[in-house]
Design a protein around this nucleic acid. Sequence first.
DNA 1: TGGAAGTAATAAAACGTCTAACAACCTGCC
DNA 2: GGCAGGTTGTTAGACGTTTTATTACTTCCA
Lengths: 181, 181
Amino acid sequence: MPTPDDAPNVANPDYWQFAQAAATRISQEFPECDVTANRLFVTLFRASSSVIYDFESSIHRPAGGTWASYRMLFALWVAGPLTPHRAAELMGMSRAAVSNLAGNLESKGLLVKQASEEDGRSLILHLTDSGQTKIQEVFARQNSRENDWSQALTEQERELLISLLDKIMDHRTAIGAKTRK
Amino acid sequence: MPTPDDAPNVANPDYWQFAQAAATRISQEFPECDVTANRLFVTLFRASSSVIYDFESSIHRPAGGTWASYRMLFALWVAGPLTPHRAAELMGMSRAAVSNLAGNLESKGLLVKQASEEDGRSLILHLTDSGQTKIQEVFARQNSRENDWSQALTEQERELLISLLDKIMDHRTAIGAKTRK
DNA sequence: TGGAAGTAATAAAACGTCTAACAACCTGCC
DNA sequence: GGCAGGTTGTTAGACGTTTTATTACTTCCA
């Protein structure tokens, strides 16, 4: 007898039902575990990666870029020229990742590395004119897609979601969460 | 004159303040854009990657695994033996990624690939005893860390956050979001 | 019965990320 | 001045992911 369409079939869940199915399954096997916490973070990761996947595949890949390259150009656009070190801090990635990414964007002519005059070890990453144009074009499309997604929520719910996520992040230091660097 | 400690310095934000700084900056340059939507998704991605980074670096790498390997073992533990195709669906990754990941886990003796009897093209992925033991150990630590993070919110807020994320995901089809496969 | 079309897993190439180790450079202290 | 120890960007090696192509098998239909 088939499961009705509106009742998630826990025995055979689809991608999004998986978080709920996992909660059901682990609470049977591991009664003392924190089922809500598990479901919360499974849901957070899946929401985040689903949205990123949509952005990357519908906007950035067709424009010849990637999610990572968008993030780098966006950071430089918003914050102005940055050292690789500072860019890594702002984007939450390792200096090695920035070095790699900056190399790729440089080879596409979207940014240039300029030697620092103050510190012989350091560089400054600048958007080129082409990079500037590119990020403005791509951001317009990205933001329009962000708007599409955000229609799922009321204005009040959007603010609420942001504040809940902020609240989790404010808790980072209290639990000694590992961070890059 | 220095910025007081409790006032985010928008000109020189840290990682977490970046979302707010970006919102301020783009609304100057791009007045017609949807600032809240941008801040919402920047915040979502950063919260998600910060938490994953903590999980991976404090739990999974020290245990000799990765975030991806945890996800695969968890899926097999929760759902039982799966074809690679079905595993890809449940984990939201491509079949190629599953093939690669399963190869690595097989070489560590955590799972085995068994030929399907019904379909000569297909396989079935099974946890080994060693894989079963491993996921139970690692899940206990993962869930404990999930609990630490979730202390940032009240029980009511946790349910609220889950339901807001669910609401966004329910909106996927309405906006024709790209999904894997 | 055969052939066309579809599906399963894998391989290849490109990219992104991490950690660890490196060379170049800076700073501070003797 | 000169050396110790820290910082900066980079490289190497490992892993994960994506898209595209390939090979093997299945299904369907004439």
